[in-house]
């Protein structure tokens, strides 16, 4: 299992992702520089959090046009696994790999806090090592995590089971109080139509060890690995 972790100027989660998948879980991982227009030998591509290109214009907007994103689109269209969290999710939306957009938090402030999420389905390559309905802790840290899309898109995401993570309270209720940023339907993460591209605002790579407060992010990387290794055998 080998992860490719993209580095844009201004990314800051790439080292944390590397730590989580490699130091903690022992998978191979390598960085991919944003100017690369092709890459080879990776089983999954990770887009990190941060402020790529300073998030100038709109968050993720410039990164979506970087050379590496052409290669990532090809990789995704061929069925490769692509995962983005935080700024990575924003880039996936900006590049059209995922529908909708992430706009300013409704309270207009940056929000860094523990996050409580429900895993809506375990039948995806990213969540197979969770159970349906698991309530998990993964931190959030963003100023623009307010997911918006037209009604038709939201209905489609919901009815096709493409809302993968949802913010809930500690009683597992998707309430307004549990919603950290105004996101529609408490959506924290969604998948594309074929289920091989996932974007989410919370940071699974920060939930990698009990000492840091949670290790609930690890099953996500383990799910990808299980799918990849399962496909090979």
């Amino acid at each position: 299992m080998k992860f490719g972790i993209v580095v844009f100027p201004g990314s800051w989660s790439e080292r944390d992702m590397h730590y989580a998948v490699s130091d903690v879980l022992g998978y191979q991982a390598e960085y991919i520089w944003h100017r690369e227009s092709s890459f080879d030998g990776f089983d999954a591509i990770l887009l990190p959090g941060g402020f790529s290109y300073g998030d100038h214009l709109r968050c993720g907007a410039i990164a979506a046009h970087s050379p590496v994103m052409g290669a990532i689109k090809e990789f995704a269209n061929d069925g490769g696994f692509v995962f983005g969290s935080c700024n990575g999710f924003q880039i996936l939306c900006e590049s059209g790999l995922l529908p909708g957009a992430l706009i300013r938090n409704d309270h207009l402030s940056f929000r860094c806090s523990p996050g409580t999420l429900r895993v809506e389905t375990s039948s995806t390559p990213f969540t197979s090592q969770f159970s349906d309905g698991d309530v998990v802790a993964m931190p959030i840290s963003h100023g623009e995590g307010n997911y918006q899309a037209d009604e038709e898109t939201i209905d489609m995401l919901e009815s096709d089971g493409r809302v993968i993570f949802r913010y809930v309270d500690d009683q597992n209720r998707a309430t307004v109080e549990a919603n950290p940023n105004g996101t529609l339907n408490n959506i924290a993460g969604i998948a594309n139509e074929h289920g091989n591209v996932l974007g989410m605002m919370p940071h699974p790579e920060r939930a990698c060890e009990p000492l840091l407060g949670s290790s609930d992010g690890n099953p996500l990387w383990q799910s990808i690995a299980a799918t990849v290794d399962g496909g090979r055998s």
Partner: peptide, 28 residues
């Protein structure tokens, strides 16, 4: 106030803002 600051990036924060002191582990 503290929740407007990213206090977790770099994956070291054991005790976040609000404690008597913050605690950061040294990786490795």
């Amino acid at each position: 106030v503290w929740r407007q600051y990213d206090h977790q990036v770099q994956n070291n924060t054991v005790i976040a803002p609000g404690g008597d002191a913050a605690l950061l582990r040294i990786q490795g």
